[in-house]
């Protein structure tokens, strides 16, 4: 039932890829595919975190700025302060976790709206990052010991970029958590009807805050991947608008901003579709200024098509229910008379 949506998305992805491949065979070349896989991996990890917050009926606008703040801290620790990379890595993950936890607490304990809390996060983290470096771009010096981590984050194994492998691993883990675990069920329950969830004994605050903590943690992971992708961080532009990519991917992938709906597979496919579209604009020689316009159009059409299809399905179900009713009703009615 849920898979229908993902199947549709996969089909759309295949059709667009096939058309682009016919128009320009370069699209399907190994180099290009691996390049896309890398980008899908980079964007997919934090889009999954974003999806979790959207499933609870919230949103996380702060991830892009988190990359910038955590990114400059990481480079500063490794390049300027001679902190070993394992410790720096831990600091970044803990930082993401902490920022997510603060946002989660503000949203649940102080009952503030997620949009506002994370919008303020977006502004604050960006400002803090720029102040921290005096708006200067930070890069790694030469000959530090982060080479191992650099290989881990941006290298390749079995011909696949590590970011992509990370995405697969994260998607599998979070997928099991979301679709099979008790916590995952609670996430959906809270997103669909927070009050009824509370009346069923679920600690809704804990569940919602948990989604923001996970989103923060995944933003921390993404920071590392992104830093080694660009090898430097300009605090005013690093990760700009990335939260919007994440929201777009989640929505394309079937998450409803009303909460309670979505799947990890959908979010990953949504991310892939966005990256394919960007790549297609480049490779087909469409003016790159149209990049965002193409993306916006496809998202609009995708969500529209999904809504229309769903309406049809619901109508079909309603008719089926009407048909099914007489078979039940007379039997139920007849029962008392037998007594």
């Amino acid at each position: 039932m849920l898979l229908k949506k993902e199947l549709g998305l996969l089909l759309l992805l295949a059709v667009i890829s096939a058309i682009t491949g016919v128009l320009n065979p370069q699209f399907l070349s190994g180099v290009n595919l691996l390049d896309m896989a890398n980008l899908i991996g980079l964007f997919g990890v934090f889009s999954i975190g974003e999806g979790l917050t959207i499933i609870t009926g919230g949103i996380d606008l702060s991830v892009g700025s988190m990359f910038s703040l955590l990114g400059v801290i990481f480079i500063d620790l490794v390049a300027n302060r001679d902190v070993g990379w394992p410790l720096a890595l831990l600091a970044v993950l803990a930082g993401g976790l902490l920022l997510g936890a603060i946002q989660g607490l503000l949203i649940t304990r102080l009952r503030m709206q997620p949009f506002i809390v994370t919008l303020c996060g977006l502004l604050i983290y960006r400002g803090a990052a720029r102040y921290y470096t005096d708006d200067a771009t930070m890069g790694f010096g030469y000959g530090n010991d982060a080479d191992t981590l650099s290989w881990l984050a941006a290298g390749r194994s079995f011909g696949l970029p590590h970011s992509f492998i990370f995405l697969i691993v994260v998607a599998l883990i979070v997928g099991v958590v979301l679709h099979r675990s008790v916590f995952g069920r609670y996430l959906f329950a809270v997103g669909k009807n927070e009050e009824a969830a509370r009346y069923s004994g679920i600690s809704t605050s804990l569940v919602i805050a948990g989604a923001y903590v996970l989103s923060g943690l995944l933003a921390g992971v993404s920071t590392i991947l992104l830093v080694f992708y660009t090898n430097s961080v300009s605090p005013s532009t690093f990760g700009n608008f990335y939260e919007l990519y994440a929201i777009a991917a989640a929505v394309l992938g079937g998450c409803s901003l009303r909460g309670g709906e979505g799947s990890i597979l959908g979010i990953v496919l949504g991310t892939a579709l966005l990256q394919v579209l960007q790549n297609l604009v480049n490779i087909l020689g469409i003016p790159s200024s149209l990049n965002f316009a193409v993306m916006g159009t496809v998202i609009l059409l995708g969500v529209l098509a999904d809504q229309q299809l769903r309406k049809r399905r619901e109508a079909a179900v309603a008719i089926a229910a009407q048909r099914g009713r007489p078979a039940v009703a007379p039997a139920a009615r007849a029962e008392p008379r037998v007594h």
Binding site: R185, A189, K192, N193, A196, A197, S200, G201
Partner: peptide
């Protein structure tokens, strides 16, 4: 409908939720 059930979840998931 507001507090007792999550109406767009399946019967089984509502029964086991608590």
């Amino acid at each position: 409908k507001r507090a007792g059930l999550i109406v767009d979840m399946p019967v089984a998931e509502n029964i086991t939720l608590a």
